[in-house]
Nucleic acid binder design. Structure first.
Lengths: 234, 234
DNA sequence: AGTATACACGAACACCTGTTCGGTGTCAAG
DNA sequence: CTTGACACCGAACAGGTGTTCGTGTATACT
């Protein structure tokens, strides 16, 4: 047996509750609902809420302030954002967790060490220079990351072109096989794979047809670990 | 200037508020908080809430019942559920909108043309092979994109290494300056910048120290436009 | 005409809820 | 020993909030 349609007032009450919860993080009071939908008496609001409860569209906890909750059916019915707090927030977590932003904080050129910010605080940056990446794209922790744009042709031995973006993690200690940004005694910065070998450091170019260089450990300073290289070609 | 750590009571208050909101869809009252964390006086609860507000961990609306909201910093600090429903869901919507997934559908090697799927449908793919990117990273439309992993050293002239990922758009027509995947008459596939020049096609390597090749138009088939190159080095 | 139901309303009431007041105790610094 | 800051507390109060009562109008049904 089909029930009657909701009255205009009842529809407006549901819409107002949804909107109020989204904005304030708590349900409205009986009087707030009354003000919003032009019902001057708390008794009439109460009557309509009772009708909505009978329809299964909301739940009420008796004798407590703001004791309203819209039910799942309302969420489904209106095709809007879920109202059940747990579900909506869980969705938020999943979505927010899947993308993160890496600040593009400067350039890397062959001739000078990288400057990565005044005090190591990576959380303050201009929104216009940010690299957005899915979190699955970089392993491990996502903090202490920054991006640099390559300036000039001097990184070609690293298979990195002018204009490419390198995503770095701020680590000064390198392990064998890491690709690092290394500052050499002769004043150049290079991106190469790092190996400790027989008391020396072998810096291996990414281009397999090129020869590695060997330096004493004190001639090289690791400035960061390269996590990813991005090239935008269009 | 470092602030003091939160007291045990304050931590318990925050945890209780989070849990209560998740369960009931509304914030707790001062008295409910007091009961939960064993504070017998509403004044002490109020005092601690004031301290948490001073720390920027919650907001209070004065003179309304259940006028508490945890701030974003709490979510970050506790690594748990976001609390402001509206903000969290809006953020989720924004975040979801800003990331898209490009299917990793195969490999590209020098010796054979690219196979990019049976019927051109790029929306059905295995979740395990997907490249997540912020939408700001690629200009123009985001449909008809796919990713290929480079196999072998033969793309070095394109500054593309074995194991790199190229993100392609399924376009068979190229404009001057586009980087394309081109299949040549001799059976090789190459990634080069495409130019029409004096009735011939100039395919320009990305590596500026290398020479371009010139081919007749009928000797080359464009198989897609390269939008981005990704190299995961860690 | 009488009855039942739906919808509407103002007023009163009981209880909930947040804020303020005046106080105590502990600890560190001078 | 004194002072100040911090944390804590019970009590009182003001205002917020939900529920109930009594009443009125319109419509449908018998």
């Amino acid at each position: 047996m089909a029930k009657k349609l909701l009255s205009e007032r009842q529809k407006n009450i549901l819409a107002y509750i949804e909107e109020y919860v989204a904005e304030y993080g708590r349900p409205p009071t009986i009087r707030e609902i009354g003000s919003a939908v032009k019902i001057s008496s708390t008794s009439v609001v109460n009557y309509n809420l009772t009708k909505l409860k009978e329809r299964g569209l909301l739940e009420r906890d008796a004798e407590v302030s703001r004791g309203l909750r819209l039910t799942e059916r309302v969420a489904a019915a209106t095709d809007q954002v879920k109202h059940s707090l747990g579900k909506a927030v869980a969705k938020a977590n999943t979505a927010v967790g899947s993308v993160f932003r890496v600040p593009l904080i400067g350039n890397i050129v062959a001739g000078s060490p990288i400057e990565v910010g005044n005090d190591g605080d990576f959380s303050v940056y201009d929104d216009e220079d940010v690299i957005e990446i899915g979190s699955s794209m970089i392993s491990g922790r996502h903090d202490n990351l920054y991006a640099l744009r390559v300036s000039g042709d001097s990184m070609i031995d690293a298979m990195v072109n002018d204009g490419d973006i390198v995503i770095m993690r701020n680590e000064n200690e390198a392990r064998n096989g890491d690709m690092v940004a290394a500052w050499l005694r002769d004043g150049t910065t290079t991106l190469k794979y790092f190996y400790r070998e027989n008391g020396k450091i072998r810096l291996q170019p990414a281009n397999p047809t090129m020869q590695p260089i060997y330096v004493d450990p004190e001639e090289v300073q690791v400035q960061g670990k390269v996590m990813m290289v991005l090239r935008q070609t269009a």
